[in-house]
Simulated assay, not measured.
Amino acid sequence: MTILESFLFMIIVLPGVEVIPEWTFWSCRYVNVVIMADDSVQRIEHCAFYRCRSLVFVKLSTNLEYIGNGVFNACYSLTSIFIPPSCREIGNGAFYDCTKLIIFSVPHQTRLGETVITNTALVRASPFESVLDGYYANQQGRVHEWIKNLNQGEEYALHRACSAFNPLKEIIYGIVKRKGPSSFKKRNEIGMTPLDYLEANPFVRHELDQRALMKQYVLEMMGGTM
């Protein structure tokens, strides 16, 4: 069964594919982009992308329900991942040893397995004194709760809007109007700005970018229109 097209360093999972079997892309060391059809893949099984060490960009299916154990383990170049609201569970060690992973946008309702993001940049940036070099086996509940609540509160409203599964221009622009354009540069607890989230978010529409938002802001302040 053919489930993908592969060219250059990109993998595109075609519409109609509901499951990516275990170990399918194991150690595809030169692949750096994975894009899944929006409403297709529901499950990614055990170690499907294990040790894809050059992988830097992943767009998951909007119908994804399950990420298995070790799926993205040892994807050393991956810096961000955005989990859709449909995802009910992420298995043990799914992002273990993704050493550069700093943005992990995950819904509150998604159940996180053990050591799911052990030895990542995100865990190393956590405020817990007992986290040592990215390992947190003794306090998984606390770490996972911290991750899911990282951008809570009015102070980080723009961070949340830019990292949303379906970021809306109207919401983002409303926050920028309220807080000013400098809010794009405000850093959160792990040093990320709203612009960092917006640029990394694979679900952002093409017309939604900082330049367009700033143009709209300036025109409105001058009494003009788009």
Rank of each mutant, 00 (worst) to 15 (best):
A212T: 08
S61Y: 03
K100C: 09
E170N: 09
D196V: 08
H206M: 10
A48G: 04
F49D: 00
C75F: 05
T62L: 09
I103A: 05
I103E: 02
E155M: 11
M226Q: 10
D209K: 08
N138M: 14
L64Y: 04
M1Q: 12
D209W: 05
Y135S: 14
K215D: 06
R111T: 14
S126I: 02
L122E: 03
P167W: 02
A212P: 04
V131W: 02
S6P: 11
K186P: 04
R88K: 12
G174E: 01
F25N: 00
Y50G: 04
A125W: 01
L132Q: 12
L219N: 09
S130V: 15
L112M: 15
P202T: 04
V34P: 03
R43W: 07
P127L: 05
E199Q: 12
V71C: 07
C162L: 05
S130L: 14
L219Q: 10
V71L: 07
L78A: 02
P85D: 02
N138I: 12
N188K: 06
D97Q: 15
S126Y: 02
L78Q: 00
H108V: 15
C162I: 02
N166R: 10
Y96W: 15
L195G: 01
T24W: 05
H144T: 08
V34W: 01
C87M: 07
A212W: 01
H108G: 13
F72T: 02
S61P: 05
A137E: 13
Q152S: 11
G180Q: 09
L198V: 06
E189N: 08
I11E: 01
V56W: 06
I171Q: 03
I20A: 02
K148A: 03
F7H: 13
T79G: 10
R160S: 00
F9C: 12
